[in-house]
Design a protein around this nucleic acid. Structure first.
Lengths: 332, 332
DNA sequence: ATGCATTTTGTACACGATTACACAAATGGC
DNA sequence: GCCATTTGTGTAATCGTGTACAAAATGCAT
């Protein structure tokens, strides 16, 4: 058992050792199948002795179920996604499902990678990335109904999706900032082309419009601390804004630092800064960020819910909508 | 091609459509195999038309190579590991290897999960977690030589490992702090039982001993910001230390905040705080942490190097040692 | 002991690819 | 024109399991 047995023992070999047929071996490892309990115990004992475990690859081929799940994500390190990834991975593993992470720097590679994963007959696909269009996902995984975490307003027979609505939370946040006397708002985007970014911006833009205001300036970063820092310097210095809504929490922290270190402005008196995502780090004492936050647990619950519906083969399009809430800190 | 074709087409069916045998289909998809180039082109065209892709599960069963790699990690969100995970995933995918993430809250589940992954005939195993002993890894993956990122001083025929040596960097950091006049040192551990933690502490303890000093106090956290914050309050208030060496960067940030907010002490004048890992966040303007840092790229290069050695079936134990360097910030 | 229902086990094929082997056709050198 | 070699393709076995069907063994009532 210990040490290095290069070759793995097969069910046929184990069958010989236990004096039964390989079919009986298989039955011993299938929870509810017709087999004498004495035989099963004997087989399991011999199996343990020789370190036998059924080969999941062969089983998948036969079953037409791999118990693999493809997770398409933008990045692993990004804290906002990471918290959700972590939760989802735990939930999957509790169901004996193994996650394959697909994560790529550039876009054409990403599609290539998705094609590769699709050849592994994954049972489910969860797309967290706004870099992947619904159509691409459906085309590539044409036998596996993908679950899309999406802001796209597209309903399709072949996709289940989770929508996120932050309009009410954005309204509450803008209400507070306006009441505090801020007048010149800027939006700091994470990207210049994603659906997610456009929709998030719209939540806040609508809230401003309701009060006869609009964004005086807009900048584009890349969701990183450094880009938040750099763009905020420009927005404050050149555009003289006194409130910055950021595309995510990490950029908001960068912006807050820029205001404080480069221009000597403090939140929330001189300037208001708002993040989005509600990552754990935003609540750290040193950050204490006001942020439009999503309940990560509810979010992952929704993903798991959709996976279970797929497993139960319930037909038809499925869509779940979640709403965000403000998390109040000392930056706005 | 577009839309939802429930069933995936097989090589045998494609063979009929293209008027060849299934063996020829297989050859069309194997880069260097004897096949007429006209036939190959025709097959690839028909394949594209019908959305055919060879089934990787079936191929793996035949090949005895799955191109799957198991990554055993403590957590996904943890920024220190996340940066390395991200790098490794990219490097694997560039080699057409798919990573399966194994990540578990509690320890017995973790072993169970590793057993599950081993049934998928993974080609390689990379263990990043100090919660898994070498022996466990070797026992569970007895056909796949694991690659361990380890601080354990164990050499084994069945394991390749990467060692990390921070003794010289720790010495330089202690030198500077002592020169700055600090006298009472504390070590804030991430766990109370891991090899990694013990070894890291030893690097600093040795550097202190060399100068006739030792740790006046020791505390145990859990690598989180909150635990860093909480334990630092105790260390500063109860034990009156003026230098805290932390088990990782995140706890160091927590400790710095505690010093500043709760006790009004500032770095580096009142107190010195040192992190470990060298995560990107440590270099953010708001943190500017002094930390014992590892070159993440070199680290992942080493992992990939070991994977390639396994692929090339070079025998014998392999071990690569990396050394850390200090990254100087304004906290020490 | 016999007949029938029920449980247990074995045999044989399927899952979807790869590949050793055999064989036909094409090529080339003399 | 003949033989040796190369090239292209098909046939059939293989990878390790699950399962339909058949066969055997068991239990129970007569």
């Amino acid at each position: 058992m210990s040490g290095m047995n290069r070759r793995r023992i097969t069910s046929k070999e184990l069958a010989k050792l236990a004096g039964v047929s390989s079919a009986t071996i298989s039955r011993a490892f299938s929870p509810d199948s017709r087999i004498g309990s004495a035989t099963r115990d004997r087989i399991l004992a011999v199996a343990r002795e020789h370190g036998y475990q059924p080969n999941a690859i062969a089983r998948s081929l036969n079953n037409q179920r791999s118990r693999l799940v493809a997770l398409v994500v933008n990045a692993i390190g990004n804290p906002c996604e990471a918290e959700e990834q972590q939760l989802l991975v735990h939930r999957l593993q509790a169901r004996q499902l193994l996650p394959i992470i697909l994560c790529c720097a550039d876009h054409s590679d990403r599609l290539q990678l998705m094609r590769l994963a699709s050849t592994y007959q994954v049972d489910h696909v969860v797309v967290f990335s706004d870099m992947v269009s619904m159509q691409d996902a459906v085309d590539i995984f044409h036998t596996t109904k993908p679950i899309i975490v999406s802001f796209e307003p597209l309903e399709s027979e072949n996709v289940s999706s989770i929508r996120i609505d932050g309009s009410k939370a954005a309204d509450e946040i803008i209400e507070k900032i306006v009441r505090d006397g801020k007048k010149r708002f800027a939006y700091l985007s994470g990207t210049n082309s994603s659906w997610i970014d456009k929709l998030r911006r719209k939540w806040f833009a609508d809230a401003l419009a309701k009060r006869g205001l609009s964004f005086e300036a807009q900048a584009f970063g890349d969701y990183s601390y450094d880009s938040g820092f750099k763009e905020a310097v420009l927005l404050l210095h050149r555009d003289k804004v006194d409130a910055i809504i950021c595309g995510n929490d990490v950029m908001a922290i960068g912006a807050r630092d820029a205001a404080r270190r480069v221009l000597g402005r403090n939140t929330p008196d001189d300037i208001a800064i708002v993040g989005q995502d509600g990552i754990a780090m935003a609540a750290w004492d040193c950050n204490d960020l006001t942020t439009l936050s999503l309940d990560h647990t509810a979010f992952i619950d929704a993903v798991v819910e959709l996976i279970e519906r797929h497993d139960a083969e319930i037909e038809g399009p499925h869509s779940i909508t979640l709403t965000c809430t403000p998390r109040w800190g000392s930056t706005a």
